[in-house]
Simulated assay, not measured.
Amino acid sequence: MPEEPSPPGTVRPGGRTARTRAAALRAAEDALIETGFDALDLADIARRADIGKTTVYRRWGTPAALVADLLLDMAEQSLPRTETGTLDGDLRANARLVHKTLTDPRSGALFKAVVTAAAGHPATATALHRFYATRITEWAPCVEQATARGEVPEGTDPAEVIRAVSAPLYYRFLVSGDPLDAASAERAAAAAAAAARAGAYVTRVG
Rank of each mutant, 00 (worst) to 15 (best):
M1D: 07
P2C: 07
P5D: 06
P8F: 10
P8D: 13
G14A: 15
G14C: 04
R19Q: 12
R19N: 08
R21G: 03
A22H: 12
L25M: 09
R26V: 08
A27S: 11
A27P: 10
A31I: 03
A31V: 04
A31E: 15
I33T: 13
E34H: 12
T35E: 15
T35A: 15
G36P: 05
A39D: 14
D41W: 05
D41R: 05
L42R: 08
I45S: 09
I45F: 03
A49R: 06
D50I: 03
D50N: 14
D50F: 05
G52R: 11
T54H: 13
T54R: 14
T54K: 10
R59C: 09
A65R: 14
A65D: 15
L66R: 05
L66Q: 07
L66T: 04
L70Y: 08
L71D: 08
L71T: 13
D73W: 08
M74K: 15
Q77W: 02
L79G: 07
R81V: 07
T82M: 09
T82A: 13
T82K: 13
G85H: 09
G85V: 12
T86E: 14
D88R: 14
D90S: 15
D90H: 10
R92N: 12
A93W: 13
A93H: 11
N94L: 14
R96N: 05
R96I: 02
V98Q: 05
V98L: 07
V98N: 07
H99M: 00
T103I: 03
D104S: 10
D104E: 11
R106K: 12
R106Y: 06
S107C: 06
S107N: 08
G108K: 05
A109T: 03
F111I: 02
K112I: 00
V115P: 01
V115S: 05
T116F: 02
T116S: 13
A118F: 03
A119S: 15
A119R: 15
G120S: 12
H121W: 03
P122I: 03
T126E: 15
A127N: 11
L128D: 04
H129E: 12
R130T: 12
Y132H: 14
T134Y: 06
I136Y: 09
T137I: 06
A140I: 04
A140M: 04
C142H: 11
C142Y: 03
Q145L: 11
A148M: 02
R149F: 06
R149P: 04
E151Q: 15
V152Q: 10
P153T: 10
P153W: 12
T156A: 04
A159T: 07
E160Y: 04
E160H: 13
R163L: 11
A164R: 05
A164M: 07
A164T: 02
V165T: 05
S166R: 02
A167I: 00
L169C: 00
Y170A: 00
Y171P: 00
R172G: 00
R172H: 00
R172N: 00
F173Q: 01
V175H: 00
S176F: 01
D178Y: 01
P179D: 01
L180P: 01
D181N: 01
A182V: 08
A183L: 03
S184F: 00
R187N: 05
A189R: 09
A190I: 03
A194Y: 05
A194D: 15
A194M: 09
R197F: 10
R197C: 08
A200Y: 09
A200Q: 05
T203M: 03
T203E: 09
R204V: 11
V205W: 09
